[in-house]
Every structure is written in structure tokens, then in C-alpha cells.
Write a protein that binds this DNA or RNA. Sequence first.
DNA 1: ATTATTTTGTCGCCCATACGACATAAACAA
DNA 2: TTGTTTATGTCGTATGGGCGACAAAATAAT
Lengths: 241, 241
Amino acid sequence: MAAQEQYPLTSTNLLQSLSSTDRAQLLSIGSVDRVEKNALIFHAGAPSEYVYIILNGQAKIYELSPQGKEVIMWFCFSGELFGLAEVWRGTHRDVYAQACSAVDLIKINRKRFRQYLMDDPAMAMRVIDILSGRLRILGDMLLNLTSNDVTARLVKLLARLFQRYGSSRDGRIYINIPLTHQEMADMIGCCRQTVTSTLGVLKRTHGLRSDRRMLYMEAESSQVAAETLTKLSIDLAESTI
Amino acid sequence: MAAQEQYPLTSTNLLQSLSSTDRAQLLSIGSVDRVEKNALIFHAGAPSEYVYIILNGQAKIYELSPQGKEVIMWFCFSGELFGLAEVWRGTHRDVYAQACSAVDLIKINRKRFRQYLMDDPAMAMRVIDILSGRLRILGDMLLNLTSNDVTARLVKLLARLFQRYGSSRDGRIYINIPLTHQEMADMIGCCRQTVTSTLGVLKRTHGLRSDRRMLYMEAESSQVAAETLTKLSIDLAESTI
DNA sequence: ATTATTTTGTCGCCCATACGACATAAACAA
DNA sequence: TTGTTTATGTCGTATGGGCGACAAAATAAT
């Protein structure tokens, strides 16, 4: 299990892995756009006309149940590609993409993107790699959801966030996204109140802190923070047995 | 939601969509193998050396929690490709693949397969399409799991199975896989007993029947069977509100 | 056919979590 | 600043469904 937490960052980051000529070419077939915080980039039911690459900011990809329950599938950061899954068939979207901050992005027509991939097999391989990685992550989420309780799920989520998005500032490791309890609940499939209280326990019993919706820990590196939490999650799993 | 149930079969079936020359070429870079019923084709932790295409029979792809809980991600039928998600990075598997019947399959070395895709962009596009489809399915499962109760999840599962694998025999529509209650439980994330009793209710109150582990309904076509169940699932969702 | 193994059907208990309800606090707007 | 909105913290209650237990039935093995 532990190994699954360690997907290399590059697996999800498209832009970073590109040569500058590739990057230029991507820019040339797409157009740069800016969306303000909280705006929907696309919504379920909409036609799938574009794929997107984030230049700056964060967006969340989620589904919405008929009863209005959000299920957040992932957060996208700069360099990441999204909106790909439905675009091939050209069917309508079945997820929502919403900006969590002001976002700059490249928007590429699906047919052009497809053509681009046809002409550049290496790039197509990158895309396959990205999709594979997401598949593994969703599989992991599925496993988590069905076989761990809320505490374990939350701890694992935090471990993953620290690992992927943790950054150091005056001796503390921060998760660089302001997350509400509701959003965390939507990521691990439970209700907001449960997140509030579970987080409360973690704050009281382990060194978790928060400041203006940013979670942090006292640790030397995000690796250490993530590992501390991962160990904790293993302990939890074992104590349950 | 209803629309999401209707992924065209082709989206998952690789072989069917190939020209005979492509098929021949695939065969030439791989080797044909046979595994007996219940044998593991690969297991979590194993190195990812091959991708597989089923010629005959069925296999299930699942994860296993440390506590031994199975989470079935999908069943693969003839023509379908599997074992792809981890193969790119060459990391170890994190899922299990197990034959549900005697299975004939093509086994292709990962590097060769990659080279093949590099040389044949159209094929790479097909693979992207397949991965995208699976991503949507997993997303759908995730949504289901967090926002529907067991009855709704089971009904939806049956609808999907009837739709994709339903076949007609003397006026009845059968799901052509012998499924145990445990397996269904593993597909919808609940325990075996709950499947048994929920299935019991469906059998008593709606025209569901079973014979030697094969579920069937009296209906004109698998479409009709699937639609009946889909409507039922919608009714259930609304009555809950 | 006979035995062994796996699956199904059914109960009852119990507990993790959902959900409603509010009070408080923080963030945002004007 | 002051009001307005949105997020957090904390109850108490209700319940879906997990889990153990065991008998009956169905499959598989010898």
C-alpha cells in the first residue's frame, strides 16, 4: 500500500515533461485563457470540445450526484492536463471542472489535440501514461473507500496531499491549497461533520495544525510529513485488526 | 446518469475494432497462452512485464486490501485489453488479474507493445480511448459508492451487466457470467449477506430470476432488461428523497 | 453415489457515520 | 468599520449495513 502513495509527480504533470519546442507547439494549437476563482471551466452535460492544460492555479474535477453530492476525483495543478477522458468520443462531459483559484490555462480543440498526438507518438505515450496514473489513483480511492474507515481515509488523503503538494515555509510543511472540510469530505466520501471532528482528533493527538485553511505540520520535509502520516495510517489499520 | 450506462461496447473492446492485418500483427509480436479457471494471470506486487488481450473466456481485475477485502474493478471479456495501467512505468502491479473461466489470451511484452503503439498512432488512439472509458467507469463507480445505498448500487450493477453482457436464450435475457453473491458484493462495495438479501427482494418484487448462478429476466431484449432496471434504480433514488 | 467444499439464506446485535440543529468563528463585501 | 456570507465545532439521534453464526442448498471432487 505504501508504495502506491508514491506516484512520481511527473506522472501527472504534462508540461514539465515537455521540451520547449513541444511546449511552444502546444501553445500554438491552443489558446490561452483565464478563468476567475470558482468559475466552472466545464460542467456535466456540456459537449466535450476542448482539453485543458493548467499554466497557473488549481482546479478541481468532480462529479455530482442527482442529490447534489460532490465527489472530487482530483485536484489539478500547474502543468497538468485535464478534460481528456470524454473528449475522445466527443460525448458530453460527465464531470465538472471548477477553478479553485484564478486559473490560467491552455485550451485545445479536441480534434487538433488528437491530430497533434497522431503526429507525435511520444506525446501520445505521455498521455497514455497520464491516464494510466489516474486509473491507478481512482482504483486506490475505490479500495480505500470500501475498506478503510473515515479516520484512515482522511489520514491517507493528508499523506498524499503533503507528499504531492507539500512545501516548506519557516520550518513547517504546508499543503499549498486552502481546503474546506466539505472539500475533504467530498474527497474521501463522508460528511463534513465527520471531517471536522476527525481532524480535531488529529490536531489534538498528532502534530497537525492549520492556518487560514492551510494545513501544516512541523517536519523537516514534506516526505517526512507524509511518511509520519502514512505510518499513522498503518498503525490505525493494524489496531483495528 | 442514464446516459453514462450506455458506453458503447466498442469502447472497451480492442480486438473487434481492429483490421485483420492489425490483428495479425498483434499476434505476431505477442504469444498466445492459455490459463485455466481460477488461475492468477498476475498479482499485486509482481513486475509488470506484459499487456494481455483476451481471445476467449473472462477474467476479473481486482485490488485486495490488507485485510483481504476484494474490490473488483472490472470483468474483461473476449477482445478486451488489460494489464495496461501499470505497464508503462514498469512499476509493480497493484491489481490482481484472475481467470474466471478457462482463458485464451495474447500476451505482449510491454516494450514491444509500446513500440507497436509508437509505430501505429491510430492504435495508440484506440488505447487512449479504452483508458478514457475505464476512467469514466471508475468515476461512475466512485460516485455510486458514495451517494447511493446498496439497493441502488446493486440495481445499477445489474443494469450494466444486462446491457453489456446480456444475451437472449428461450425468451429470457441472461447475464452470461456465473456470478457469486460475494463477487457482486465486491463489485459494489458491500458485504455478501447484504447482496443475498437485496437480491432476494428483487427476485420477489421484480421479475429477477437465477439459474446456476446466471441471473436472468423475462424481457424482449437486453436493452429492455437494462432499461427496466435503470428505471427501477431511478425510482428508488426518488423515493429516497 | 458419497463426501467435501463452496455458496446461499436468514437472524440478531452493534457500531460507525449520516444528518439535523445551532452556536461560534472566520472570511468576504460594501 | 459593519453587515453578510461561508466555514467550523459540537451535540444528540437514528439507521444502514457490517459481521458472526449456523443451517440448508448447491457444486465440485473422489
